[in-house]
Simulated scan of single mutants.
Amino acid sequence: MAVPELAPRRTLGGVIAVWVVAALIAVAVGIFTPVDLRAAWLGVGLGGCLLAAFAIQLWSGRSQGFTERVAASVLGATVVMGVISLGFGLAAIVPG
C-alpha cells in the first residue's frame, strides 16, 4: 500500500533552474570563447547542464517522474542554448 504525499513539492522550479543555468552558460560561452571553439564549449556546457539536472532532481527527493523531469530539463537546456548560440552565430556573420 502506497502512502500518498501530504504536500508534494513543486518540481517545475528545478526544471526551470536548469534552463537558467543553460542560458548563463551559453551567454558566457558566446562572450568569452573564440568563434571557432564555441560549438565545442557549448557541448561541454550542455554536459554541465545534464549534471546539474541530475543534481537538482536528486536533491528534490521525489522519485516519481524523475526521468521525465531530467529529460525536460536537458531538452529545455538544449533549446535555450541553441537559440542563444543561433543569436551569436547570426551576430558573427553580420558585417559591422
Score class of each variant (00 low, 15 high):
A92V: 01
G45M: 09
L12D: 07
F66E: 02
V27K: 02
V29L: 06
A77V: 04
I16E: 09
S73I: 11
L42N: 10
V27G: 04
W41S: 08
G45I: 09
G47F: 15
V3C: 06
F88M: 08
G14Y: 00
V27N: 02
V94E: 15
I84W: 00
L58H: 08
V83F: 00
S85R: 10
E68P: 05
L50A: 12
L86R: 04
T33S: 04
A22D: 08
V80W: 00
L46R: 07
L42F: 14
V15D: 07
G76W: 06
F88L: 10
M81I: 11
R38V: 14
S63M: 06
R69E: 05
V27A: 11
A53Q: 07
S63R: 03
V83Y: 00
P95E: 15
E5P: 01
Q64C: 09
I93E: 12
V79N: 05
L46A: 09
T78Y: 13
C49F: 03
A91G: 07
S63P: 00
P34I: 14
A91F: 08
G43H: 12
I56A: 13
L75H: 11
V18P: 00
V44P: 04
G87H: 04
M81P: 03
V79R: 02
R10E: 12
W59H: 12
G61V: 06
L75D: 11
G14T: 02
A7P: 01
L86M: 11
D36Y: 12
F88S: 11
I25Y: 03
G96P: 01
Q57R: 08
G61S: 03
G87D: 04
